[in-house]
Design a protein around this nucleic acid. Structure first.
Lengths: 196, 196
DNA sequence: GACGATAGTGAGTCATGACTCATCTTTCAA
DNA sequence: TTGAAAGATGAGTCATGACTCACTATCGTC
């Protein structure tokens, strides 16, 4: 994300600026996780312990702030996907799926944004990377014959987005989450050897 | 829903009041369908061709207006469920499910509300009736042996809510909707005779 | 340590949207 | 036909939240 508006050749950020930037990001992550993208910038400033003007110096608009956070999160998810690449493909896909849905409840903003195409507008490249990671997992599981070959990426993404959303807004508990995902996973399994 | 605040013995509503009430309800249905529950009361008034004060005379708060609309919709859905009771149970359940998801895209407010527990607070009895209708369909399909007996109502409701939500926010086209629901339905089918 | 560039501050602006109420208009029973 | 009572009107209030900017504080360099 762009460092604060600085003219001229880029000098490193001043120490206090760097410190505040981190604090703001942390506070924003909390606030938006709890309240979704409608959380107020003022609340972010309050939690970060800075004045509201400081927030706007670092992130000229609220969307910039949201984008910065989404960027962090997406990178983290992509990394997680990578870490799962050793596992058996079907397990990798289902574990990744489950993990995202589980986190959804704690990350309102993410779900809000994922739902509203807002992300694609803000950080298209990263979304592509993320989608690619899911695609990889899907293909591998299909190659291994443990996920139905008729299934395509769009519907997997669709189910991922909608169950995350549901888990969040509906406040699903662990049990309901498991049962619901079990149905989805059963639906993804080839007809022959469906295992619940 | 309560007629406008009238003291004393309830006289029938005046002709112009009745007319305006209907207009407001129609306008609100449109506006909230398009913009979700964040649509403004002023826009509703504009489309109804009345002053904003009139809207507030009929529905003292925005929530009252939203509740009135949700009531209409829920009643309609319950009626649809009833009309399907002649069909083969599995078909009834899946048709109902599909229909709701299909309408989701045209009814933002509904999805918003269904998602946020807002409805239960506003019109608990009707929600119970609605849930009951789904439960009936589910049980019958299970009795007929065409839906997995391990599946319970909560996860069906969860999937219903989340796919509706997904279809709306994600702007799924007809094809994606079908493919996604196919996976869900496959997941609901007993292992033995899963038919795609 | 001094000084200029960089960063922080927070009261203030502007827009939006729910809701109110004094005043005017329409209905309808007598 | 008429006069209340019921209803409609819309400018105005209040709260919220994004964003600005004149001013002050701090950093880092010489």
């Amino acid at each position: 994300m762009p460092p604060p508006r600085t003219a001229g050749p880029d000098r490193p950020m001043r120490a206090d600026a760097r410190r505040n930037r981190v604090r703001i990001l942390e506070a924003a992550e909390q606030v938006f996780a709890e309240q979704g993208s409608s959380g107020s910038t003022e609340e972010v400033a309050r939690r970060a312990g800075v004045a509201i003007g400081t927030v706007f110096r670092h992130f000229p608009t609220k969307d910039d702030l949201l984008a910065a956070i989404m960027k962090n999160l997406l990178e983290q998810l992509v990394a997680e996907a990578g870490a799962l690449s050793d596992s058996e493909p079907r397990t990798a896909l289902f574990t990744f799926f489950t993990r995202i849905v589980e986190q959804a409840a704690a990350r309102k903003a993410v779900v809000d944004l994922l739902a509203q195409t807002g992300v694609e507008i803000m950080i298209p490249e990263l979304v592509t990377v993320f989608t690619g990671a899911v695609d990889d997992m899907l293909r591998q599981a299909q190659t291994a014959g443990t996920v139905d070959p008729e299934v395509h990426l769009p519907e997997v993404m669709a189910l991922l987005a909608s169950t995350s959303q549901g888990a969040l807004h509906g406040g699903w508990d662990a049990e309901l989450r498991r049962r619901t995902l079990d149905i989805v996973f059963a639906g993804l399994t080839p007809r022959a050897d469906r295992a619940r």
